[in-house]
């Protein structure tokens, strides 16, 4: 049988790549079947925000010393904030629904392990973050708010967004007793982070006591990295940001594995 080789890997605790690939493919297939609706998430909604903020609020704000116009400041933040929503939605809401529909139970009857499921979920969170970034950054590039050369860098940052916020979403999916409880991931995590992570205004304008909190928030280093890439002003602070993101991802992955195993294996 063609499954003979991965069997060995299983018993030694290695990752069977086919499991990750197949679950990721399933998610992509499911998304592609609703592509008309998905288009609105990936394009219309973020573009509305981008135009309203950059053109509307930007008109009131006027020039920002370090960045030129407000649009140049805010565009990378909106790109990354939108990617965050996609990653966190995928791994909390969609994952929670799949738990309820016994999707993972079925997957586990195949030669699949929990770490492979978690990796597939994260891979798809990254995929959604990347699609979102291509769409939103594409518009910002067309308006001249982000240089085209920054796109590869923004995509790299979006991989970090997928890992960190996919991971956070999975913790909520694994712990939430109900859909109601799950909605806390948006009210407590996604929405506050969207506004207070240096996305719409520099953290330096916050009161002194709130600044350290904003810096520790998991979206902040990613927004900071995206802005550094977009403006070409990269410094040592971005090195710390990158390390912080990697540390978060490294912490969230095993935690998600443990909590999801507790949820799925009884």
């Amino acid at each position: 049988m063609s499954t003979a080789t991965p069997v060995l890997a299983a018993e030694t605790g290695l990752i069977r790549f086919r499991s990750v690939h197949a679950i990721w493919w399933r998610h992509l297939l499911a998304l592609s079947r609703v592509w008309q609706v998905a288009m609105t998430w990936f394009v219309i909604e973020p573009v509305v925000v981008l135009l309203a903020v950059a053109l509307g609020i930007g008109r009131l704000v006027g020039e920002m010393d370090a960045y030129g116009s407000y649009a140049l400041f805010v565009a990378p933040g909106i790109v990354i904030g939108t990617a965050m929503f996609h990653a966190i939605f995928e791994c909390s809401w969609s994952t929670f629904e799949r738990i309820g529909q016994s999707y993972y139970e079925t997957a586990l009857t195949a030669p699949v392990t929990i770490p492979e499921i978690i990796l597939a979920e994260l891979a798809f969170a990254i995929t959604r973050a990347l699609i979102s970034t291509v769409a939103v950054a594409g518009f910002a590039i067309a308006f001249g708010w982000i240089p085209l050369a920054a796109l590869p860098g923004l995509l790299l940052v979006s991989v970090g967004v997928g890992l960190v916020f996919g991971g956070i979403g999975l913790l909520f999916a694994a712990l939430a007793p109900s859909m109601h409880a799950l909605s806390l991931v948006f009210t407590l995590v996604a929405t506050p982070l969207y506004f207070f992570s240096g996305t719409f205004f520099p953290i330096s304008v916050l009161p002194d006591w709130l600044q350290p909190v904003a810096w520790a928030a998991p979206l902040t280093p990613l927004v900071e990295l995206a802005r550094g890439v977009a403006t070409g002003q990269l410094g040592v602070v971005h090195l710390y940001c990158g390390l912080y993101v990697m540390a978060l991802a490294a912490l969230l992955y095993p935690l998600a594995v443990v909590l999801m195993r507790r949820r799925l294996m009884k």
């Binding site: 049988m1 499954t3 991965p6 069997v7 299983a10 018993e11 016994s102 009857t109 030669p111 699949v112």
Partner: peptide, 13 residues
């Protein structure tokens, strides 16, 4: 050997 077992097993939950 859970994985080896599951390559030989069909499950209807």
């Amino acid at each position: 050997q859970p994985r080896a077992v599951r390559t030989r097993l069909g499950v209807v939950t």
